[in-house]
Amino acid sequence: MLDITEDPKDALLEVNNIEVIYNHVILVLKGVSLKVPKGGITALLGGNGAGKTTTLKAISNLLKSERGEVTKGSITYRGERVQDLVPSDLVRKGVIQVMEGRHCFEHLTVEENLLTGAYTRGSSRGEIDADLNMVYDYFPRLKERRKSQAGYTSGGEQQMVAIGRALMSRPETILLDEPSMGLAPQLVEQIFGIVKSLNEEEGYTFLLAEQNTNVALRFAHYGYILESGRVVMDGLASDLRENPDVKEFYLGMSDEGRKSFRDVRSYRRRKRWLS
């Protein structure tokens, strides 16, 4: 287990009190701060519309093409301000996002999809082939389907393609958005298992946005809980799992047995802002 300290020197990626506005009017993030340590799996949890995806897109700079912008705060990677870069610069720096809903290139074959991941690299064909084999080792299913059009593969396979494609850029940090979306529980376990081994064996750093709090907290080292654009709680994953509020609101467990929907409150207690 990774040792997380509060020392900012250990943070590879640091998001500092950012505010994000869409279309100049809609305030989506109201001051989100987080730290992603090197070699860890950090989870960003919260319900629909909490701002998980927006946070990831703010980091990867995909916001601009959706008319969103970071209006306050700063985002640094290895101590360097990165929020004014274009996505391709960030990919070259080693930060790549796997988007929610997979977003494969439908009409390209599985292998072509993976190859587009190596677009920013000036590497030789041999190096790229070696990485392709590395991806196939982690996702043997993709090797079988390498010649099929990605649009015709299953949801799980597409998620594998999306992750594999990101790996092909030789990243340091992978921003993984909602990998469990629309997948059967068994597949979710499998995908998370692969994420874990990629983290442990290859040393990739992950920042993971996930609604499935239960799974995410089992695989992650550290977690942040977002609610309507703010971080309301953070802590070691093991601590969060035992936290009575998290249990009640996100894991659906409570000391008083099952609750009806009437009793569900939004999480407002102990709200705090990280600076």
Binding site: S65, Q97, V98, H103, Y119, T120, R165, A166, S169
Partner: peptide
């Protein structure tokens, strides 16, 4: 070719193409 593949990728999905670093 690499650029040709990138061109087809852009045709399929602008956002995803951006996310893998295609300009």
């Amino acid at each position: 070719t690499k650029q040709g593949r990138a061109m087809r990728a852009v045709a399929d999905d602008h956002q995803a193409a951006l996310s893998v670093g295609i300009s």
